[in-house]
């Protein structure tokens, strides 16, 4: 879906959402624009040059590369990228990146590191799915994204293994605190 490059009234303006580690290796990636990133080889080559351009200079957070506007943000050993059409309003792409980072940050309880992210891979995939649908920006409000990719309170039970594995449930921690307060 790269209609946006040629048609300014198209909504397909996101070409990809990528998270790399400190060596520039892919942690997770979802590409939407098959014209620009049709093959894995093209994707990996792009990621390589993207990383070499962005890893040295951590203060900058936007770069133009091979006709793609790339916004990025890094933390500890992770680099977050939103790749968009050069015709898309950069502020819209910026809002998308902020939403991605903030939503992941909430889910990982501010522990935005590779190990934590890998442990919560299923939730991270759901977050990416809530933010972008086939290249259309779906949501830029991190709070809404977290709500839509999270568990509901009545689904949480302590026997349920998926809770601990999800690595994210405020309700669980609140419940635990409540339990402790009763035991004290």
């Amino acid at each position: 879906m790269a209609d946006f490059d040629t048609n300014p009234t198209s909504l397909y303006s996101i070409k990809g959402i990528v998270i790399l580690d400190q060596d520039g290796n892919r942690v997770v990636a979802k590409y939407y624009d098959r014209n620009t990133f049709g093959t894995v080889k093209e994707q990996k080559a792009f990621e390589k040059s993207l990383f070499s351009k962005t890893s040295r200079n951590t203060s900058a957070d936007i770069v133009l590369l091979d006709g793609v506007t790339c916004l990025y943000r890094s933390n500890v050993d992770l680099y977050f990228y939103v790749l968009g059409s050069t015709r898309e309003n950069e502020l819209f792409l910026d809002a998308t990146l902020t939403c991605l980072y903030d939503a992941v940050s909430v889910v990982l309880r501010k522990n935005v590191e590779k190990k934590a992210l890998v442990d919560a891979m299923d939730t991270v995939m759901l977050i990416i799915d809530e933010i972008c649908d086939e290249g259309i920006i779906m949501e830029t409000d991190a709070q809404a994204v977290v709500q839509r990719s999270a568990l509901k309170s009545d689904e949480v039970s302590f026997s349920d293994q998926s809770v601990s594995q999800l690595g994210f449930s405020f309700i669980e921690s609140a419940n635990k605190q409540f339990k402790w307060s009763l035991l004290k």
Binding site: R26, V28, A29, K30, T39, V40, Q43, M121, D122, M125, D160, Q161, S162, Q165
Partner: peptide
């Protein structure tokens, strides 16, 4: 087995997404 299946499913989706 919810835990096991969720993890396997995540891996399956992952390899497809990675091409």
């Amino acid at each position: 087995n919810i835990k096991k299946c969720t993890h396997s499913l995540t891996k399956l989706i992952y390899i497809i997404q990675q091409g």
